[in-house]
Nucleic acid binder design. Structure first.
Length: 745
DNA sequence: GAGACCTCGGTTTTT
DNA sequence: CCGAGGTCTC
């Protein structure tokens, strides 16, 4: 293994002998390289074996990347290594220790949408109808508390509403454990509680993992941090890599403060800074630096590069979102043709998934191939989830969530009435829906029995067939295939394709199964062996496939090998790099998002997000915005994002507005649609243009208010002297103002 | 119980 | 504009 291609700081990090180390690695400074080199170095110099190392990443993508990099630096295999996401590793631990964790051996992982439907069920059966968003509120409430390690019995109740939520949280816990369901946060929490309460197990892992490597440390939440702490034993050395400027997951509980905590209690000032950037040319880096310095409370770090300045960052302002998209696609065509850039070296980044639609349209109409990441993932598609529900019922028929999902899909004459009485029976006899069928005597009895028999037959078959033939058989046997074949919906053709793909996925999974060593220690009763090692026995292929499906939802699209432009959210782009990057929709209200403008800490997170976006670019960066944009069927007007203003002008090349002369046409259209909406909303009246105190005001007009500063008029309400205007202000968001008394400059 | 129609509200980001 | 729920008719 060769350490020569590391710079001094990188080498220092890779070969450090200190017990705990904090590496602050700026964007493009070789973070992944350092992590994987460190691991390879430990193994190559025989300071560690694969048995001694635990490596945690945040995404499956990052884990795969690390595995392949480390493997390329080694001659030996790294099969047994504990490497993966927090969720993946906790899952692995729970499969070994399912007994000590009071889990069913066949416990299933549920994703956010499964969780939500379970919660809706609970709310329904408790007859609570207070707020509209109760299900989502409760979901947030549950996950929030779990992420702080708080069980329902420990929640501090302060009013009747939180009391109600807590009761429902408790019922949710009961239902989950009865049905053998584990949600994402539960994986962490259960694993944490296991280590916390079981001295034997904790000591075992503390002794075993002498080297812990953590990637993206700034993204750890409280529970993850505490989980890590429980793994730190007397001879454990933790190597944590992070960048406070790239912390973009505070919204789901990530706590940047963990970096400082780790420094204070473990690293104790043993910090290595990687500040030389190898990715971006000068102007791009300069833009990123000048932006991020607007944040407060940074740990401090200034990236520099030895490469040249390159082109300035192009800032393009267009009239509306479709023109923006068209401009981007046309520019891409030029880059591909004139500059010989491969399409797959170009990325378009945006703040929210919804923005991909209009871009896709532009790509499609110009015949340029593209690929969208994110959005609806493979294993999250409804047809796939239907099929998976049958598979889950094979493993555990008491999984009410899955049972209810497919009991009447395809249609079997089992309606809400029948299900209501079945629920009642299941409560009365304290059994699952599957078992409740025994006691049901109503009209649909035969239908229900037939459905349960489908599950029973599949159960028997699952012992004889391979995983992929089981899936293939199931699709026909349950009627899923014929349902979609007979459907007239055009989109159901795609669903059929996806179901075929599921068979392929199962096949691929079984053949790669040799690499998956998730243990289920039924033989050992999960106890310590003489050798003081937990035996890792493989799960059945079916169980392991189901876990894989939940933990790794898969990409949105099936690969089609064609090199194409990549479209994704900024979040999804973290950790990636591209020769050319377009950041689109850089407008107030969108980026930073309007929900974030309310407090300064979320604006700072948005700014870090923008920083991440900028630093993805190697050679050329475009920042584009549109003055108006269709959002949820409604036109919205906005102005240039504050982030553009914050970038040092020296690094920017402004490109003129495109097609400004289309203003009138668009405005008319807007007035028309908005009048319709206005009537339904009981507004007095809506105009596109009014005259107040002899001053004309129109929608889309840029104004400067004495106290609120710059803004754009987005709506005019009323008429004459009483007319009010809704104005989207750059610094203070949308406000409604009486034009007669408003003070404009 | 099934399917067609209507209304309403909403996703910013993801393991 | 979209999809999830509710309501209405057969």
């Amino acid at each position: 293994m060769n350490l020569n291609d590391l710079n001094a700081e990188q080498e220092k990090a890779v070969t450090t002998g200190s017990s705990h180390t904090l590496v602050l690695a700026g964007a493009g400074s070789g973070k992944t390289k350092v992590l994987s080199s460190r691991m390879a170095w430990l193994l190559n110099t025989k300071q560690a074996t694969t048995y001694d190392i635990l490596a945690v990443t945040f995404t499956n993508k990052a884990a795969k990347e690390m595995i392949s990099r480390v493997s390329s630096m080694l001659t030996t295999d790294i099969k047994g290594l504990w490497i993966g996401t927090f969720h993946g590793l906790c899952h692995k631990m729970l499969r070994i220790h399912w007994r000590e964790s009071n889990l069913l051996q066949s416990f299933q992982i549920i994703d956010m949408s499964d969780q939500l439907s379970l919660i809706k069920r609970i709310i329904k059966s408790n007859d609570v109808n207070e707020s509209k968003n109760q299900a989502r509120d409760l979901q947030k409430f549950i996950n929030y508390h779990k992420e702080y390690g708080i069980r329902s019995s420990k929640v501090e109740v302060y009013d009747s509403y939180s009391k109600k939520l807590t009761e429902l949280y408790q019922e949710y816990e009961i239902q989950c454990s009865r049905e053998g369901l584990v949600d994402f946060s539960e994986l962490l929490l259960k694993s944490y509680e296991l280590l916390k309460s079981d001295d034997n197990i904790r000591n075992y892992y503390q002794d075993r993992f002498r080297f812990i490597l953590v990637d993206e440390f700034q993204d750890t939440n409280n529970l993850q941090y505490e989980w890590l702490r429980l793994l730190i034993g007397k001879s454990t050395s933790v190597f944590a890599v992070g960048d406070d400027d790239q912390s973009i997951y505070a919204f789901r509980g990530a706590n940047v403060g963990n970096i400082s905590l780790f420094d204070k209690y473990y690293a104790k000032g043993n910090i290595i800074r990687l500040e030389q950037n190898y990715r971006s040319l000068g102007h791009i880096l300069g833009a990123a630096n000048s932006l991020i310095k607007n944040n407060t409370g940074r740990l401090g770090k200034k990236l520099w590069t030895q490469s040249g300045d390159g082109d300035k960052v192009s800032v393009v302002e267009t009239f509306n979102d479709s023109m923006e998209s068209q401009w981007v696609v046309d520019e891409i065509k030029k880059l591909v043709k004139n500059n010989k850039v491969n399409p797959d070296e170009i990325a378009i980044l945006y703040r929210s998934n919804a923005q991909s639609r209009v871009l896709e349209h532009a790509f499609f109409s110009r015949g340029v191939s593209y690929k969208v990441y994110g959005g609806l993932r493979f294993f999250e598609r409804q047809e796939i989830k239907h099929a998976l529900a049958y598979l889950r019922l094979i493993v555990n028929s008491n999984d009410n969530n899955s049972w209810i999902r497919v009991v009447n899909f395809p249609i079997r004459g089992i309606g809400p009435r029948t299900l209501d009485s079945l629920w009642a029976i299941s409560r009365e006899y304290d059994v699952s829906l599957y078992d409740a069928v025994k006691y049901y005597q109503g009209k649909s009895r035969a239908n229900l029995v037939a459905f349960n028999n489908i599950i029973n037959s599949l159960k028997e078959l699952s012992n004889k067939l391979t995983l992929s033939s089981l899936v293939e058989y199931l699709l026909d046997f349950t009627g899923i295939n014929s349902y979609y074949q007979n459907s007239k919906e055009e989109s159901d053709k795609d669903r059929l394709e996806n179901l075929k793909e599921l068979v392929t996925a199962a096949m691929v999974f079984s053949t790669e199964d040799g690499y998956i060593d998730i243990p289920a220690s039924s033989l050992l009763n999960s106890s310590l062996q003489d050798s003081n090692v937990f035996i890792e026995e493989k799960m059945t292929p079916l169980l392991s496939f189901l876990s894989h499906a939940s933990l790794e939802a898969g990409d949105g699209q099936i690969d089609d090998n064609q090199p194409s432009v990549q479209l994704m959210t900024v979040h999804a782009a973290k950790g990636l790099e591209f020769r050319v990057v377009f950041i689109t929709g850089v407008e107030e209200g969108l980026f930073p998002h309007e929900n974030s403008v309310v407090d300064s800490s979320s604006v700072e997170e948005e700014r870090r997000l923008m920083y991440v976006a900028i630093t993805r670019a190697k050679e050329k960066l475009y920042i584009t915005m549109a003055n108006s944009r269709m959002l949820r069927g409604q036109t919205r007007y906005s102005s240039r994002s504050r982030f553009i203003q914050e970038i040092d002008n020296d690094h920017i090349n402004f490109i003129k507005k495109q097609n400004i002369n289309n203003v009138n046409v668009i405005n008319k259209k807007y007035v028309y649609t908005d009048t319709l909406r206005a009537n339904s909303n009981n507004f007095k009246s809506v105009a596109s243009e009014v005259s107040v105190n002899n001053n004309k005001f129109y929608i889309g007009q840029h104004v400067r208010h004495k106290s609120f500063g710059d803004g754009v008029i987005v709506k005019l309400i009323g008429s004459g002297d009483d007319c009010q205007a809704q104005i989207n202000f750059t610094n203070s968001g949308v406000k409604t103002i009486m034009l007669r008394i408003a003070k404009f400059e």
